[in-house]
């Protein structure tokens, strides 16, 4: 008996020491944010203005729960059918440092919501807004743009590439290998 009680005590203590990340298990309604402009260019006559940021972007970006949800949704909504596990196929690679429409959370959110002309479908009516933010956060993790403490780790499935929490930042790799 005694050892078991001790063990339980220790486990409780250990658990109490962990700071648990906040989790939005009840995301907001289907329609939502993201009506602000998201330029797809840095060329702005007369000089660049700071691009507007969405507060969803920051709260979703470094959040392990949202990232892992994003990973699940990436398969669920067949993103993986066109982009494979980030290396691309029918759609472009998402794990490299090359972005056609911008790499910010806001740009990727707009890409998924509104679609893009050369074959990226618009998921506006298919995916609730918060899940689009989760997808955007996960897409960024593919090119190493998510904290390794929060990004998804090893799959239970066939490993297509090193897990997201070990992906190097594509932008600093110099060139796409």
């Amino acid at each position: 008996m005694r050892p078991i009680v001790l063990l339980l005590l220790f486990t409780l203590l250990a658990l109490a020491a962990c700071q648990r990340e906040e989790r939005d298990t009840r995301p907001q309604s289907a329609l939502g944010s993201g009506e602000q402009p998201t330029p797809v260019t840095t060329l702005e006559p007369g000089g660049q203005r700071p691009s507007p940021t969405d507060n969803k972007a920051a709260s979703f970006e470094a959040n392990a729960f949202h990232l892992s949800e994003g990973k699940r949704l990436f398969g669920w909504f067949n993103c993986s059918g066109c982009h494979a596990n980030g290396g691309g196929g029918m759609g472009p690679a998402l794990m490299d440092q090359k972005w056609i429409y911008g790499s910010s959370m806001e740009s990727i959110h707009a890409t998924i919501r509104d679609g893009r002309p050369n074959g990226m479908p618009s998921f506006r009516d298919k995916i609730p807004d918060d899940q689009i933010w989760e997808l955007a956060a996960f897409v960024r993790s593919l090119s190493g743009n998510a904290p390794s403490s929060a990004a998804p780790s090893r799959n239970d499935d066939m490993m297509a590439h090193p897990s997201e929490n070990r992906m190097p930042d594509a932008a600093t790799l110099g060139k796409s290998p």
């Binding site: 494979a84 980030g86 691309g88 196929g89 490299d96 066939m158 297509a160 796409s176 290998p177």
Partner: peptide, 20 residues
Amino acid sequence: GAIVSGDLDPRDATAALGFV
């Protein structure tokens, strides 16, 4: 040849339905 014509990323073994 999609890896070249589509500029796919060879680090993903499953890119282009696994051909990459």
